[in-house]
Simulated assay, not measured.
Amino acid sequence: MDIESALSALAALAHPTRLEAFRLLVRHEPEGLPTGALVEASGLTQSTFSTHLAVLAKAGLVVAEKRGRQQIQRAHIDTLRQLMTFLAKDCCQGRAELCEPLLADLACC
């Protein structure tokens, strides 16, 4: 991931509605959620929420899949992995043992 992609993803997640929607989608991987369920969870109107969804999609954090008549939204886990790797790659000047608490936190959840 390059700096521009990282900034785009971070900017997309820097809004409470988008961050919560993305976290909800991550919890529902790999099956995803219908767009209507995301709108309902957000408490916003369809048109307002679709703007937030478009920002997440443009940043590569969310992908849509057509399943029958429903539009299913899924978190793009590969983009999340790339962003997390980008942020942690130079962690602690290459001293991996300093990142072990972070890895332990991830493993427990």
Rank of each mutant, 00 (worst) to 15 (best):
M1C: 03
D2Q: 05
I3E: 10
S5Y: 00
S5M: 02
S5Q: 14
L7S: 06
S8M: 13
A9I: 00
L10K: 07
L10W: 00
A11K: 08
A12M: 03
L13W: 02
L13K: 04
A14D: 15
A14V: 04
A14E: 09
H15N: 13
P16N: 11
P16I: 09
L19H: 15
L19A: 15
L19I: 07
A21R: 07
A21L: 08
R23G: 03
R23M: 10
R23C: 11
R23P: 00
L24E: 02
L24N: 09
L24G: 03
L25M: 03
R27E: 13
H28W: 07
E29T: 14
P30M: 07
E31H: 13
G32T: 06
G32Y: 02
L33A: 08
L33W: 05
P34K: 11
T35G: 04
G36C: 02
A37G: 04
A37Q: 13
L38E: 00
V39I: 15
E40H: 09
E40R: 13
A41L: 05
L44P: 01
L44S: 08
L44Y: 09
L44G: 03
T45W: 07
T45I: 01
T45L: 11
S47W: 08
T48V: 13
T48G: 10
F49D: 02
S50G: 00
S50I: 04
H52G: 14
L53C: 05
L53T: 02
A54V: 04
V55C: 04
V55A: 11
L56I: 04
L56R: 01
L56G: 04
A57V: 05
A57R: 15
K58R: 15
K58L: 08
A59R: 02
A59K: 03
A59V: 01
G60I: 06
G60Y: 01
L61R: 07
A64P: 02
E65Q: 12
K66D: 02
K66P: 00
R69H: 15
R69A: 10
Q70N: 15
Q71E: 12
I72W: 07
Q73K: 05
A75F: 05
H76F: 09
H76Q: 15
I77R: 15
I77P: 02
I77L: 15
D78A: 14
D78N: 07
T79C: 04
T79M: 06
L80K: 05
R81W: 07
Q82W: 01
L83G: 09
M84Y: 10
T85F: 06
A88M: 15
A88L: 15
A88I: 12
K89C: 03
K89Y: 10
K89M: 11
D90Y: 01
C91D: 15
C92E: 13
C92S: 14
C92Y: 09
G94Y: 06
G94W: 09
G94M: 09
R95V: 13
A96C: 05
A96P: 00
C99V: 13
E100F: 08
P101W: 03
P101D: 13
L102K: 01
L102F: 14
L102I: 14
L103K: 08
L103A: 12
L103S: 07
A104C: 01
A104Q: 13
A104F: 01
D105R: 10
D105F: 07
A107Q: 11
A107D: 14
C109L: 12
